[in-house]
């Protein structure tokens, strides 16, 4: 073993030693700190409204429907990396649906419940409280798929639909999740687990980029000298590890009907006995996808615009990954302004 190698090893250990001092002084790691108020609850689902200090300049309020996997705080990770804070600054009135943490008592919640019960209830609540017929709806990832289904079933209540990194065409082979899910016995997974554990899903996500964790933690000692960078890292870690379990029946239908049988684009998906027709999505649609998305590849998102009935639809290509689209440096300058501008032009 030469001297250089020994030095490298010793340096790696020394960096950890220094990092200890910085880490031990962290009291808590906070995310999702933009002020908000609980304005409504339906069953265990909560609806928050973000506090504005000035009247909104875009009159139609925006409801954000995040994925059931992980938590909505990713859009409000820290004050200088907050899609939501940016939207507020640009004049939007923003609501977010907090799906909560399903317990065993929630195992029978279905896809229909999430769409026709929860989303429908919060949409009605916002419509009534603002005295308007239609609201703007923004869906993220799986929350985007739910938003599309809702918009197809209740087009009269949605003024504009924005989808971000949202899977629609599940026939692609581009993403590992899409390949793997076809080989899963989803009935067994749900029957045994009841609710599908968040940890199980996180393991699967970890395997999509098998060495990402090594890379990440290998570079962590270098970040620990800089408190800001360290806190950025920890906030992201906190978000990643906060992974709610999935209500069993909803998960079963989502995987079977969508990942395995691609029923949404085939026009075969049924919710409460009603076929979901994408041609019923007639409102303006902004479809945002990320070019480097390894969870929801562009091949799964782009086809939306070919299947909907809307004449006013736009594809927005964002150079980055599934999460970077919301938390990256570029996103802070581009994404929220693009969304606000698009909505402003249709806020009549």
């Amino acid at each position: 073993m030469n001297e250089k190698v020994i030095k490298d090893l010793a340096e790696a250990g020394a960096k950890m030693a220094k990092g200890y001092d910085n880490l031990v002084n962290v009291d808590s790691v906070e995310i999702g700190t933009t002020p908000k108020e609980l304005v409504h609850t339906v069953d265990k689902v909560k609806l928050y409204r973000y506090v504005r200090n000035t009247p909104a300049t875009i009159k139609t309020p925006l409801i954000i429907s995040y994925a059931l996997v992980n938590r909505y705080e990713m859009m409000d990770l820290q004050p200088d990396r907050s899609f939501i804070a940016n939207l507020l600054q640009l004049g939007l009135d923003v609501y977010v649906i907090d799906w909560g943490y399903p317990t065993k008592a929630d195992r029978y919640l279905t896809l229909s419940d999430y769409v026709n019960w929860y989303i429908n209830d919060v949409v009605d609540f916002v419509r009534k409280s603002h005295g308007i017929d239609k609201v703007n709806l923004l869906g993220v990832c799986q929350g985007g798929t739910l938003s599309i289904i809702y918009s197809a079933l209740h087009p009269e209540k949605i003024k504009n639909l924005i989808t971000t990194v949202t899977p629609v065409d599940f026939s692609t082979n581009d993403g590992l999740l899409f390949r793997w899910s076809r080989k899963l016995n989803i009935d067994r997974i749900v029957d045994v687990h009841r609710n599908v554990p968040g940890e199980f899903l996180n393991n699967g996500f970890g395997m999509l980029k098998p060495m990402m964790k090594v890379n990440k933690f290998n570079s962590l000692p270098d970040l620990l000298d800089d408190k800001d960078k360290m806190m950025n890292f920890l906030r992201m870690e906190k978000w990643i590890n906060d992974s709610p379990d999935q209500a069993g029946e909803c998960f079963r239908q989502f995987i079977k009907d969508l990942y395995q049988e691609n029923k949404l684009v085939k026009g075969e998906l049924e919710v409460d006995g009603v076929k979901v027709k994408l041609k019923n999505v007639t409102m303006p649609v902004l479809n945002i996808y990320a070019t480097e998305d390894h969870l929801v590849p562009p091949a799964a998102t782009i086809p939306l615009n070919d299947h909907i009935g809307s004449k006013d639809h736009e594809l927005y290509k964002f150079p980055g990954g599934h999460i970077g689209v919301f938390v990256g440096n570029r996103s802070q300058k581009e994404l929220a302004p693009a969304v606000a501008k698009w909505l402003m032009n249709r806020d009549k």
Binding site: L23, V26, D27, V29, K213, F217, P221, L234, N241
Partner: peptide, 23 residues
């Protein structure tokens, strides 16, 4: 064990594990 915050705990654990991988 010295930290109350779960995120720092996990970060320390993972960093330690990866450091051993590097060794």
């Amino acid at each position: 064990n010295f930290w109350n915050d779960a995120t720092t705990k996990n970060a320390w654990f993972d960093m330690n594990n990866m450091n051993q991988g590097y060794a």
